[in-house]
Nucleic acid binder design. Sequence first.
DNA 1: AGCACGCCGACT
DNA 2: GTCGGCGTGCTC
Length: 844
Amino acid sequence: MNFRLAQVIVDVPSRETDRPFDYSIPKSMQGWIEVGSRVGVPFGHRTVQGFVVSLKKDSEMDSARIKPVAELLDLVPPLPPDLVELAEWMSRKYACSMISSLQAMIPAALKGKAERYISVAEQEKENYGDSADSLFVMQPLLTGEEEEIVTYVKASGSVTLDHLNTRFPGQAGIIKGLISQGVLSEVQLIKDKVRKKMVKTVAATVSGNEAEVALSSFTAQARRQKEVLQFLLEVGIPLSLQEVLSTLRVTAGTVKKLEEKGYAVIEEVEVFRDPYQNRRFKGTEPLQRTPEQDVVYSRISAALDDRTFGTFLLHGVTGSGKTEVYLQTIERCISSERQAIVLVPEISLTPQMVERFKGRFGSKVALLHSRLSHGERYDEWRKIREGKVQVAIGARSAIFAPFRNLGLIVMDEEHETSYKQEETPKYHARDVAVHRARQHGAVVILGSATPSLESYYAARSQVDDKFAPVLLEMKQRPSGSHLPAVHIVDMREELRDGNRSMFSRALHAGIASRLERGEQTVLFLNRRGYSTFVMCRTCGYVAGCPECDISLTYHQKSNNLRCHYCGYATPAPSVCPECGSEHIRYFGTGTQRVEGELAKLFPGIRVVRMDVDTTSEKGAHEKLLQAFREKKGDVLLGTQMVAKGLDFPDVTLVGVIAADTALNLPDFRAAEKTFQLLTQVAGRAGRHQLPGEVFIQTYMPEHYSVVHASGHDYDSFVREELKYRKGLHYPPYSKLILVTLSHEKLPLLLRMAENFAGDIRLKAQRLGWYGNLDRFSSEALDIMGPVASPIPRIKNRYRFQCMVKYRGSMDVVGLVREIALTTHHNLRDSSLQISIDVDPQMLM
DNA sequence: AGCACGCCGACT
DNA sequence: GTCGGCGTGCTC
């Protein structure tokens, strides 16, 4: 069966080119080009990279315009067919282009760009021979400048256009002219960002008797060569040239001579860059399962053995041993010749985590994380594609690990927002995982101590037939250790009693006593609260939107308060509307401020500060934690990153500076995120012999997210939170699509945004979808806005957004995409950008 | 996105 | 007269 045509998605990010283009497959590439192949194709006036998404037999129609594939870029297609299918699904689900979906699936190293190579045209060489001095005869029509360039190109054979441009600056026009005259010719080839790493190896070609003869044949002068051969014979396996040179202190010339005599061969072989090659990992054995773990393990194992698609939501308290369950189910999966993907939030891809998996599975594991170089990442990825490993661990994008026979996908901390990509393609790894597992008949485990409401609701109600996980629970800690005592500190009381510091008296005393006893403290600051909101320091009143039940954002420029959902605005009050106090002000605090205050209150205190500023350097994260572990600091102060998976034996106090900073963000998930974080943080203290204590400072001590986090009570929290969500028709009781329009000209943008929202409304009405979500019906759709985006201008472009909120299984994404397309088409102005975020996580 | 084509203003 | 400004339209 010979396919003659390849349908190719080209690497040109525009709406008009977001469809397959047909190319003929040259004889030489037939059989090699498959679905998922990466190719170089002529496109317009240049060559671009593309991906083959399907193959066709010859079609008689429109054959005249069809060009051939220029180049096949990899011997093995980088994408197996199921990933191409997944890309199609992603593009539909998230309203993004095919090329962006495909690009997200391969390592950045393979984002090839065309390189233009220039050489002297063939007929020119033939006509005028090869000798340089015949040039003046041959080109009477060429100017001196032109001649100089041609001579240069001829002498070097083939040069890149870039090189030629730097060698002959300001003469780009002349070079272009020579190409169009046919004197010079141009070839475009796709060049990858990294090459495979090659290493030279040396091996002896003789052995036994032959070797004896060879060794005795060396003269005294060639004694170094003799040493090399002896060494090679002793070792008996090929060695890297580098190794031979450094151990014997000989030069490459010596080895080369040996090769010339035929006693050895030097070969170039490709190697994998292994970022962990110099590290030894202590092997670990599976632990004895607790009864709880055993129940969970058997349920999942049964599903694995069935080899049919299934999803589990594993709700286990911090320290209940979820990781051990993962490890053992992975073991079971790979022992049946199938592979497993483990997804973790980037932030928890810590050395401890790595050690645990490497310790159990050793070289069967590939690690994909953002700190790897392009080359290292590419190599880890190739180990997966070539079947050299059975387990892939990584952040979000590891869901695209090119395994061919997936059996299990584990998603740890499934509630983490980092699983949603904020750039195009704006996919959620959880949904992609479920779809991929379905393709492979694989099992998904979503694990968390504080599951997302979406997952928990789906598991509880079994309502969504596409994704209804089976709920599994683990409520005990195998170690028998107790969850720490959590104290809520009312900061309003502190102020009333005259304490204006950011530390309550209780926390202050706590830190002081830890300093005395030589124990350690972790202080947590929620960075998400950095944006400003208005709050009364006397009574805790927070300005909220009357329509949306969400706190308002303070805008300094206009001195008013605004709602990001409905556009409501009101002047900023100077006294509290609730209690009349003048202590009303906008809030916001940073780690630096806390550090400064600590230094003032506790002279000589050693603070390890972890935030974006101090951890931007490679490895800084690990270094800071190591320093704290070695007790080079009394206090570890940081944001999110101190909350995750850390385990220090001497930490007996955890303080949350301001629990409610995130609560007041204009985000309907504010309570959920606060609860998750507080629960996470509270799990940090007292994990070992020393008992732990947690202080949560807050201005809203009665808020249910704070109360239930302090009681380690997930169920009660969820009950209240679902009530709130249901009342306002937020997920999981509805689905959201956030559409952001941007343009340089504000009036035009505003008009377009109004038009867009109007068109959606109109079309939805015609389809019978439109209507208030309050009405009793399984299908309803509402569109809010347009309103100015939380960041109203980025890079000189104004931004407006609309929020589509709906219930039912209608293809609303399709509708939004269609209207976006026509809006664009009608305006004929390519500078209008419309970005669509399906299931948005960040609403500000 | 590029890149060429094409139609109007400041220069040798 | 021509060089070159960037609007518009196409890419199998």
